[in-house]
Design a binder for these strands. Structure first.
Lengths: 231, 231
DNA sequence: CGGTCGATTGATGGTGCTCAACTCGTGTGG
DNA sequence: CCACACGAGTTGAGCACCATCAATCGACCG
């Protein structure tokens, strides 16, 4: 069982780790785990005993507010590491499967040992920095963007990440994102009703289509024009 | 010149690094630098040639949006590291002095060398994780909180951080935060006008006073009641 | 066939933005 | 010393954006 089996390309963490230090990576004990859609993969407050990379399917990180509302902190795509921070500290967020998922699971103790003297460690520091930068960017989006811009930004961001992994086609290909409007609202600080209305605007302008199981991108140029940012 | 001179107590990064590995830390070349209020300390896009810890005064991290608006990502207090991420990647944000500041400056190359085989490195990884978690928390605040709650949260957060460093007194002591309403708005995604109105509400309820040079906390119990979170 | 989940649409109202005028304190140059 | 500009804050009026509540609808499923 080898991570090279993952249908995930260059930019994905799982693959990148393997490239970085094939020997150290190869020696790690790992298991393949599956989890059904909507199941909890990790709970806030735990110190993770296993580290996961997402092999197939989508998931999301979230916290629950004291009033019971949910804030989604980010979406996890095939190739992403799920619980890197859990190696060093208790988790501050929970992770839930969005679709049925398959995971590579590494024993946390093994993993910590493996990175003590390995370029893997450098790679993981880079990943922590990228995570922090992504969270900063999300702060800017929530602080300064309208509902329309937030949604367009999210769609293009996900599309771009998928494209980096070879999981989405070129500019002319349609791409379906398996998100419920519920999730979009919880990620962007919007009500479900307003997400519905805003998506309707995008559909009426021809930028997207609303399929049975998610949003279909079919005019990225229009979306980029609406984003108000460089994409 | 030694970081132990800093008027900063246990929880501050500068001091904690020193405790973690006094020898490695003591050998680092360092210089004391001053910068006037409003001066730029670091620019987004640079790869930092020096690492700073904030010795005295306040600063903030920010990015500029394409429309020219500013999003403040966080405030930096005495004892905070300023450019840790700049050791490994180009900066994704700029840093500006809020007041006159004094900095400890370390050469980045020296610093990278020093942490290669030192418990300092472990400490810095912890710091990166805490930074990422703080950014996640800010996403939740901006996504789910009203203007009043955001402002109360910011005030209590800053007060708590200062208290951890011995830079603020107990619950009965007044504490003045040297923030312009401008900064509060840019940090919390609110207009300056609305910040003014919201602070007026807090003042009328007796939770704060508005001094000439900042906000004065004088009733933390009332503030905690308004925060809608555990503090 | 009833039940549930996700999405849509309408009506209504509140939170917070924008524009504008004004105050107050401070610094600056004639 | 005064006039003036300037930055920061305050206050009012009007409105845009988005939340909330409620009703409905289609798809899917046991």
């Amino acid at each position: 069982m080898n991570c090279a089996e993952c249908p995930v390309r260059d930019a994905a963490e799982c693959h990148a780790l393997h490239q970085q230090d094939p020997e150290a990576f190869a020696v790690l004990a790992r298991a393949r785990v599956t989890a059904p859609a909507a199941s909890l993969i990790l709970r806030a407050g735990e110190s993770a005993s296993r580290v996961f990379t997402l092999y197939e399917g989508w998931a999301f990180r979230f916290t629950l507010m004291s009033d019971g509302r949910r804030q989604i902190l980010g979406f996890l795509l095939p190739g992403d590491m799920i619980s890197l921070r859990g190696l060093f500290r208790r988790m501050t967020f929970s992770v839930q499967a969005l679709s049925d998922v398959r995971l590579c699971a590494f024993d946390a103790e093994d993993f910590r040992e493996a990175i003590k003297s390995s370029p893997l460690r450098e790679r993981l520091v880079q990943r922590l920095i990228l995570d922090a930068a992504a969270a900063d960017a999300q702060v800017a989006v929530l602080g300064r963007r309208t509902a329309l811009q937030r949604i367009v930004h999210l769609i293009l961001d996900l599309d771009g990440r998928l494209k980096n992994r070879g999981l989405a086609g070129g500019d002319d290909d349609d791409m379906e994102l398996p998100l419920r409007q519920n999730h979009i609202g919880d990620a962007l600080g919007l009500s479900r009703v307003h997400v519905s209305r805003t998506l309707a605007v995008l559909r009426d302008r021809g930028a997207i289509a609303l399929g049975r199981s998610g949003i279909v991108l079919n005019d990225r140029a229009t979306l980029r024009g609406l984003a108000g940012e460089v994409f």
